[in-house]
Write a protein that binds this DNA or RNA. Structure first.
Lengths: 205, 205, 205, 205
DNA sequence: TCGTAACCGAGACGGTACGTCGAGTCTTACG
DNA sequence: CGTAAGACTCGACGTACCGTCTCGGTTACGA
């Protein structure tokens, strides 16, 4: 993920186990210490690895945490619950569940904050986390279109804008609910939210 | 804001000018350096103040930045543009404008990230920033009710839940758009967003 | 001691009790904390006095400690034990007893160390402590001359040099024994030392 | 001198050049600033070394200065001038010359003062400075015995006490002359002092 | 008797140095 | 060449005292 095939032919090959151990150690440290008290020296110690090894693979704390957190979101799945509303509720609940975990809370917002002054970091976040999950919105829409719940899109540009809007609304609301309001994004809340969102998007129904 | 009227009668009184200078210097440093490279020593120097003076008034970087950023949001006003939709658009645009400023971007997300592991800090954020702006939602609703655009609320508990939901949706979407998607929350986007939001909330119209 | 009659006629006069309290507090702090950990703020607190009051009377830590320690040496007396040797032993034992007290040990060497770079401080030490005790050597000599143990001096310059030499040898040996060798300057040691000194000074006997 | 062969096999070895540079920088700072204005940060800068490196090797200002000053006394040599009196004069003059240097004056008394409250420090001073120079007294005595100027000692305990007494008298007198009386321990003074000392020790002659 | 000038306590102020910690780099010996 | 170990430079941390200042309030003289 962080190494772009350095294409080194000779010498001792990099330990593959190390990557796994480091990312796991990073998440463990995030849980115990949070972003600001997490130190790379500590992560290296937890992973049973020298600091040098860590720096050879990641440029710094930000990059490391992005990768460590990104893995958490890969377990998101779009369940087939029979209706668009139910599908959305399902995936939003999963998203909320991940965000409730301390390693996600603590790490995600911090790297987003850092990314406001670091274009490369923002790009890495978008590539590794955000865009990767937009597939859920696309998948959900085509499934709803297949069911006849939504009309097929006509204008592709307008369509892309809508996907982005939906993504901002969903992710933003859950994040704000969880981190700022510090209230659980539980089933009741998700149902209310989904209702407003769907009504807003499909005024006809 | 940080001092709860210590009411000490004797001794040299605290300089009131220092508070102002420190908060201004904090914002300036946020603009130039961003959260992670902002140091309290530097802020003190910019403010023409000793580090000890700063520490006498704020417990640390987090608390200082919360207060510095909070002042930015106090300039939010609910404009009377004649209709609910226009009013919402107006205030969301103002909110987006503030969030577009680097001192807000850089600082706000960082303290939110820190607050996931610091209950007192979260409380401070809520008191100083979030709750203080919920007035806008309430004001907007009563104005819309006076205009007849919205029915008077009946269930006060349900009503509070709705206010919270709206706030999470508005603030969340704008924040996500601005910081994560890194796209401007311009008039077009605000119009689209407001349309979805209003339709979702008032399905009858 | 520190005030050279400032000749202020009007206004509230300085509290005389404060001086006593401050010097006593200084010695107490020297006993408990030693020179390096003694702080003027702490002395002021112990003396029940504001820091300002203390600074109004002494220029700093060095000057304060010199005065506090000087008082200790004023209790030195030349006992009349019947012979020159016995007289010397008596006064050396007294000197050793004072130097054994922690407030003297801790403070005296420190101000001497400081005085190597501060001519005014050295002068103050000499005036307040050293020269004031040279009377003992002079007194002892005239008493021994009266007894016929020593011949009357002839060359006054030579005589002054001898007084200085004796003083350096006595004070130096006791200080070195006490502080550097960290052995007690007890009766046995004082007797050995006095014997060598007297033999060296009166070779005829 | 400060490291007792930690015998760590792995890792980057400590820079040997750093020790030398730090001790030299310490002496330079003592000359320029004196003990009380010497700061470890400044020493580190002068030595071209980070503060952490300094703290990794010495526990604090006291320990560092003891080592820096100790090196000064290692250049003491017992010259063979043909007679006991001349030998003593020679070594006392050397001792006085070292003590006249500002880095010795300023540092030595200060650490002695500190050592009154720090047993470990006193031990370090004794090991590094005092005991190391007692060899001069022993050497001088055996040389004098070989010449027939002194009888061979009979009682070893008495002999050790005498060595200590001589050392306290020599070191004490020179220190007191130099630092307290602030007069130069020049040839005249050393001759007078040596005469008294030798007469006191060898009354027969 | 009353002003006033110097005192007093308290404590905030601008500074300087402290000793520690983490970041990120470099230098060893070993695999 | 990768790796573990650990020393390295650098810079910020938060604390402690320094010596100064600014308050409100308190004496004691002298007009």
């Amino acid at each position: 993920m962080q190494s772009r095939t350095p294409a080194s032919r000779t010498g001792r090959p990099r330990s593959v186990a190390a990557d796994t151990a480091i990312l796991a150690a990073t998440r463990a440290a995030l849980v115990e210490l949070g972003w600001s008290k997490l130190t790379l020296g500590d992560v290296a110690t937890r992973a049973g690895v020298a600091k040098t090894t860590l720096y050879r693979r990641w440029a710094g704390k930000n990059e490391l945490v992005v990768d460590a957190v990104a893995e958490l979101f890969d377990e998101l799945r779009l369940p087939d619950r029979g209706s668009l509303a139910a599908d959305i509720e399902g995936v939003v609940l999963q998203f909320a569940a991940i965000l409730a975990r301390p390693e996600a809370k603590s790490g995600l917002m911090a790297v987003v904050a850092e990314s406001t002054r670091d274009e490369a970091l923002r790009e890495r976040i978008r590539t590794s986390i955000v865009d990767r999950q937009k597939r859920l919105v696309l998948e959900g829409r085509s499934r709803a279109q297949a069911r006849g719940e939504l009309p097929p899109e006509t204008d592709p540009a307008e369509s892309a804008r809508t996907v982005d809007l939906i993504f901002d609304m969903v992710a933003g609301a859950v994040v704000h609910r969880t981190l700022v309001s510090a209230e659980p994004a539980d089933e009741d809340w998700v149902r209310s939210f989904t209702r407003v969102l769907l009504l807003g998007l499909t005024p006809s129904s």
